[in-house]
């Protein structure tokens, strides 16, 4: 029998009145992935994660976590841990008490496992303090500890680097990077490209509730990573011609015409520009940064 997928989402929909917060989303997270869910704030990432964890009901589609639907109840979350938005705890209990409480809700608290989880996120020395006195970064780390103590096979992290200092972010990356070797698949949601680029190999870029791209980061670079930069004597005329020859996505940035098109179309455009008497001053193929691609997929689509 083939291994069950940690996350298999098909046609996921969540509407709030007329607004589709999540619109026909498909996600496939393979075992051992560190999978990035990337998108600007309000793109629908957290709503998607909430449906994955059974916290909100969906309006359409299917969700399977290791073959089980979270709507069935907490049994489907047996091998799953994580948090959405910032992790929340009882401020009047200590960090250790909060973990003991959550351990009890998991069927029994193993104190050694709790302390091991606290040590792993470097919180053992503050474990006896009330969570109300913790900084945002400390709460993030406690959230990670509370997830790790469940020994999950799938870890869902929503903006886990929020509030962490640079050293904390470095430690988080190291920790997350080591998880697949321990049999843990990670679904890592963030609005920060650099963060996702650092830890994830596969990503889904979400924008306006839709998946704008899903695949490996190197595939993203290969597919969308280069564009032609054309400086013409008459930029507006060049843009009109580009649209006419079949490059509707061509656009002007200042005096520069940007063209995402195969080379034969660029050849055709250069011939047409010559025929139209529009001089080409410069034509070059430029490699885009991942950041450019991210903005292109999220801002241009909007």
């Amino acid at each position: 029998m083939s291994e069950l997928l940690p996350v298999e989402v098909r046609g996921l929909v969540k509407r709030y009145g007329e607004l589709a917060a999540v619109d026909d989303v498909d996600l496939t997270v393979e075992p051992g992935d560190i999978y990035g869910l990337l998108g600007p704030n309000g793109a629908g990432k957290t709503t998607t994660l909430r449906m994955l964890l059974g916290l909100i009901r969906r309006d359409g589609g299917t969700v399977k976590l290791f073959g089980r639907d979270p709507v069935e109840g907490v049994g489907a979350l047996e091998d799953v841990a994580g948090f959405v938005e910032s992790p929340a705890f009882y401020p009047y209990l200590t960090g250790r008490e909060n973990l003991r409480l959550l351990g009890a809700l998991d069927g029994g608290a193993d104190l050694r496992a709790i302390d091991a989880a606290l040590e792993r996120v470097d919180l053992l020395d503050r474990a006896g303090d009330r969570v109300g006195t913790y900084s945002l970064g400390m709460r993030q780390r406690l959230g990670i500890a509370s997830s790790l103590m469940r020994s999950p096979k799938l870890l869902v992290l929503d903006e886990p680097a929020n509030g962490l200092d640079p050293a904390g972010i470095r430690d988080l990356r190291t920790l997350v990077a080591a998880l697949p070797e321990q049999g843990v698949t990670v679904l890592y949601s963030s609005h920060l490209l650099a963060e996702v680029e650092e830890v994830c190999k596969r990503v889904a870029i979400v924008n306006d509730g839709k998946i704008a791209f899903e695949g490996r980061l190197d595939e993203l670079r290969a597919s969308y990573g280069s564009a032609y930069r054309i400086e013409a004597a008459d930029p507006t005329g060049a843009l009109e011609l580009a649209h006419r020859v079949g490059a509707p996505q061509a656009r002007l940035e200042g005096h520069v015409l940007w063209l995402d098109a195969p080379s034969d179309l660029v050849d055709q455009l250069s011939i047409e520009l010559g025929r139209a008497g529009i001089a080409i001053r410069q034509l070059a193929r430029e490699q885009r940064s991942l950041e450019d691609l991210f903005f292109r997929l999220t801002e241009d689509a909007a």
């Binding site: 964890l53 059974g54 907490v74 938005e85 929340a88 705890f89 959550l102 809700l105 998991d106 469940r150």
Partner: peptide, 14 residues
């Protein structure tokens, strides 16, 4: 405290 999401994603049902 926004803690409902914390306790409802553990192994104890609603």
């Amino acid at each position: 405290n926004n803690t409902l999401k914390t306790i409802l994603t553990r192994s104890t049902g609603r």
